[in-house]
């Protein structure tokens, strides 16, 4: 917690003086990094420390509000919300990471190739993305889940795969608008091959748009996983994820809001942090 405390004082100063925006940005970045580090540490700790078992229920402590023993309270069957929120981070991070890995890398590269090379490649990528988009996602998910069960990998790959078209289309649209720019034409005229042009000219210029979306996509994937739980096709209970903790907790929202509050606020803070980091990274590029 130490870096957060020391960062607080200059942040207040910076807020009074808009010209010092860069320093505020740095502090924001620091805060965001700390938060994300905490989330990752928490997820790791929950797998390692038996005291933080997210599945262990204390049947004598059902629906208890936050207390010294259960810092964030307990849920309907007496499981510790703190432990579940930390462990939920692990599922959500896996799903989120797979979305980016799949969507940004696979989708982004497919889109750039399609947008730059056009022709047959564009057609094939177009058919692939159109097909994924045209097939109702929910029915696809149901079919896959009913065949192979809803583990981390199935859900992560599914949501990641479903995000491929969005990334591919964004990258393609962005590539098309970039490829006729003077600097790209110049590079081409200088005899650079398509791979080289894509690497040196297209990718750096396409990345900001696609990157901006990938931060939204990570969030969306975490939220989608929760919605799937709501419909009964999310991660198998009792595996916790932020999404299904929120979905489970809504039942008790009127009487025990802490069940929903902890994962929901954690999710929001994480999303904000991811975004702040994202902005810092895109500003930092040459």
């Amino acid at each position: 917690m130490h870096p957060v405390e020391t960062a607080a004082a200059p942040a207040a100063q910076a807020a009074r003086d808009p010209r010092r925006a860069p320093s505020r940005g740095r502090i924001g970045t620091a805060l965001a990094s700390c938060w994300l580090a905490l989330v990752v540490l928490g997820a790791a700790a929950s797998s390692l420390l038996p005291a933080l078992d997210p599945l262990r229920a204390d049947f004598s402590a059902i629906l208890e509000p936050p207390s010294a023993q259960h810092w964030l309270g307990t849920d309907a069957i007496g499981r510790d919300i703190l432990a579940r929120t930390l462990a939920g981070g692990r599922s959500s991070l896996i799903v989120g990471a797979m979305t980016v890995a799949f969507g940004l890398v696979a989708g982004g590269l497919l889109g750039i190739a399609a947008g730059y090379l056009r022709g047959v490649v564009d057609g094939a990528v177009g058919i692939l993305t159109d097909l994924i988009l045209a097939f109702p996602a929910l029915i696809l998910i149901m079919a896959v889940v009913s065949l192979s069960g809803a583990g981390y990998w199935t859900i992560g790959l599914l949501i990641g795969g479903l995000s491929v078209p969005a990334f591919a289309r964004l990258a393609r649209a962005s590539t098309i608008s970039v490829r006729e720019q003077d600097y790209v034409l110049a590079a081409r005229n200088m005899g650079a091959g398509p791979l080289r042009v894509m690497r040196t000219e297209i990718i750096p210029n396409v990345l900001p748009t696609v990157g901006a979306y990938s931060f939204a996509a990570v969030t969306a994937s975490i939220v989608v996983e929760g919605s799937l739980s709501f419909l009964g096709f999310g991660l198998q209970p009792p595996l916790p994820s932020w999404g299904n903790l929120i979905a489970e907790g809504r039942v008790h929202f009127a009487t025990a809001p802490w069940i929903t509050a902890a994962p929901a606020l954690t999710l929001c803070a994480t999303v904000l942090s991811v975004n702040v980091l994202g902005q810092a990274l895109s500003k930092g590029r040459p």
């Binding site: 939204a216 969030t219 969306a220 975490i222 939220v223 929760g226 919605s227 709501f230 999404g243 929120i246 979905a247 809504r250 929901a264 999710l267 929001c268 999303v271 904000l272 975004n275």
Partner: peptide
């Protein structure tokens, strides 16, 4: 916008 993105649609 990030609060909204982070909120599941059913909520």
């Amino acid at each position: 916008s990030f609060l909204l993105i982070a909120t599941p649609p059913f909520i």
